[in-house]
């Protein structure tokens, strides 16, 4: 992954992607790495495009924004269309399976993230945590142990089990996909 890995999480406001970014950065710190998390948002609290950025590095991080992501996660078609072309040539895009793929510029992994959150886990609001599980299973950017610890530290009291279930469902989604990819 090189010394500096740039990750962009994008979707619509209210999907919890900024929290997912914070959790991912905290997991990287638990792994002993440097991390910076930032976000861009408009005046609205929900709806509208939302973007969280995380940079993970073994060395100190100077420029704090993503220049060209190594990893792009998108949960909405709007975000996919907006960001799909700005990605490193060896980068990877993880998208929700509800998004219609167009002209994949790089490797695209399409996973039923929102459906899994909704049906298997039982609450669509944990799509952000399912996303994190899937992203980590596919990219191994942080350890599973650290992400679990970071999720448990950040989610509201009383929702730990729901979120753990969501994280594991995400791991499974990503790992299943990786196996299939290797078998091809």
């Amino acid at each position: 992954m090189g010394e500096r890995t740039e990750i962009r999480l994008s979707g619509s406001g209210g999907q919890g992607l900024i929290l997912a970014g914070i959790i991912l950065a905290e997991a990287a710190i638990l792994d002993g790495k440097n991390a910076v998390q930032s976000q861009s948002y408009g005046p609205e609290a929900r709806g509208g495009a939302s973007r969280a950025e995380v940079i993970i590095s073994d060395s100190p991080i100077d420029y704090p924004k993503v220049m060209q992501p190594d990893i792009l996660l998108t949960l909405t078609e709007e975000a996919f269309v907006k960001y799909k072309d700005n990605i490193k040539s060896n980068g990877i895009i993880i998208i929700d399976s509800s998004i219609r793929k167009s002209e994949p510029p790089v490797k695209i992994v399409s996973l039923p993230i929102i459906e899994t959150a909704n049906k298997s886990v039982g609450k669509v609001i944990v799509a952000n945590i399912v996303s994190l599980g899937a992203l980590i299973a596919v990219t191994k950017i942080v350890s599973k142990k650290s992400i679990e610890e970071a999720v448990m530290d950040r989610v509201p009291k009383g929702t730990e089990e729901l979120n753990r279930k969501a994280l594991y469902a995400g791991f499974e989604l990503g790992e299943f996909q990786q196996k299939q990819y290797k078998n091809k």
Partner: peptide, 9 residues
């Protein structure tokens, strides 16, 4: 705004 809102280690 950048240094105020960003989170880092």
């Amino acid at each position: 705004e950048v240094v105020a809102h960003m989170r880092e280690k």
